[in-house]
Amino acid sequence: MRLGLMLGYAAGKYELPLELVREADRLGVHAVWTAEAYGSDAVTPLAWLGAQTERIKLGTAIMQMPGRTPANAAMTAMTFNQLSGGRFLMGLGLSGPQVVEGWHGVSYAQPLARTREYVEIVRRIFAREAPLTFEGRHYQIPYRGDDATGLGKPLKSTLAADRNIPIYLAAIGPKNVELAAEIADGWLPIFFAPERYDAVFKPHVESGLAKAGKTLDGFDIAPTVSVVINDNLDIAYNMLRPMLALYVGGMGARGKNFYYDMAVRYGFEGAAAEIQDLYLAGDKGAAMARVPAELIDAVALVGPRGRVRERLSIWRDSPVTTLNMTVFDVETLRTMVELMAE
């Protein structure tokens, strides 16, 4: 298992933690990842970081597919990969219906079929074997809708490309996880619980791999994991309660919240219902207080150094291959690198 660094997306003013990323590059951390929601984009800050680092891989976790045509995403990936010396990791995802339809203004319908077509088109563009044509349910290239001019021409990218740029998919639902294992090079889960992998994720990962004739060997399972090292365990827990309350309680509508559903699959149905009820009623503080310590321990590494070292062994014994840390300071980063070396 290797370490990655997850920076996420920005709210308010975007200030990149340059010291943190430079230290991660110096220490040999595998990759740094940026994200986007409906504010900062994932690619611009990553390019800024690429210009100021030397070895660390540069990943998007994720580029929102509904916000870009497949060709536009492929162009970005090929350009970025060339300029960075082959360091780009292409993380893709759908986001959710609130953002897709409320922000990007496009349909969220049939997300699995759209994802499958999108990734296939991107891979064809990378391969540059022929001018691009595609006849899918959601994408037709050249475009041939009722309002088409009829002048569309199949094109092949003018830019040389590495056909093996790794493609990762963000997924947490059963069918999405299966699809990621089938068609992607890696999987970017959030709030991953290693002790519940066998019961919650393993059947879907294995089914997807089997469909593609693949094995776990070479498939990068790369969850985002918050790390808070603090001698006061209660302080460590409280630092993560706001984020979990936001996702479980408010990141999606009632009945259409993927993070709520995952907490339920982990066995926290009662707590998840309380958190959601309180959050949607506007009592965010009470919602945060209801986040169980057991849920935090299931998906994060928190507490004194010795406790984090002990619980890190759970992650080492899981199929996780890249542990993408969310850390808040350079000292925690250095500590995690030291613990991984022990």
Rank of each mutant, 00 (worst) to 15 (best):
A61H: 03
A281M: 10
V330G: 02
I275A: 04
G213L: 02
K175Q: 14
A71Q: 10
A181Q: 03
A212Q: 01
Y247P: 00
P319W: 07
A47G: 15
L112F: 15
L5H: 07
G105Q: 02
R123H: 06
G12L: 10
S40V: 07
R116Q: 11
T224A: 12
L3I: 05
N257D: 01
K284G: 11
K175L: 15
D25T: 05
T69F: 13
Y266C: 00
V248S: 10
E135A: 15
T158I: 14
V227E: 05
D283Y: 09
G150L: 11
Y139M: 03
P292S: 07
A130Q: 15
G173N: 15
A127I: 03
E342T: 12
T69W: 11
R316S: 11
G28K: 02
H30C: 06
L188H: 14
K256F: 15
E274F: 05
E15S: 15
Q276G: 05
K57D: 06
Q82G: 13
H204N: 09
L46Y: 04
W187S: 04
R22F: 06
K256R: 14
K211D: 02
N232R: 15
A245H: 04
P194Y: 05
M239Y: 14
G59N: 01
R307T: 14
R87S: 04
L5I: 07
V327G: 04
G8M: 01
Y9C: 07
Y14T: 13
T326V: 15
L209P: 05
G91I: 03
D146A: 15
L89V: 04
R144G: 10
M90T: 02
V119C: 04
L7R: 09
I221P: 04
F268I: 04
A245N: 00
G4Y: 08
A130H: 12
R241F: 03
Y118D: 00
E294F: 14
S95W: 08
D231L: 08
A271D: 12
L46D: 00
F134T: 01
N232D: 14
Q64I: 11
E178N: 11
K284P: 05
W33Q: 09
E23Y: 12
W187Q: 09
R128D: 04
F80L: 08
F328P: 03
L169R: 00
R309T: 08
R137S: 13
H30L: 11
A113Y: 10
T321W: 02
V177K: 01
M288T: 01
P70E: 05
R22N: 08
L49A: 01
G105V: 09
V291W: 07
Q82C: 08
E206W: 00
A271N: 11
V228Q: 03
F192L: 03
Y237H: 10
F201T: 09
F192D: 02
V99K: 03
L5W: 01
V200H: 00
A212N: 05
R124T: 05
V200P: 00
R334M: 12
E269D: 13
T53V: 11
A171Q: 00
S95K: 05
R114A: 02
V330L: 15
P97L: 11
H30T: 13
S95D: 10
V337N: 01
V21D: 01
K175I: 11
M90R: 06
A37E: 09
F328E: 09
L179K: 03
S107G: 10
D277Y: 13
G249Y: 04
T60A: 01
T335D: 11
D220V: 04
V308I: 12
P194V: 00
A42E: 07
A51I: 06
A293D: 14
V302L: 01
P66R: 03
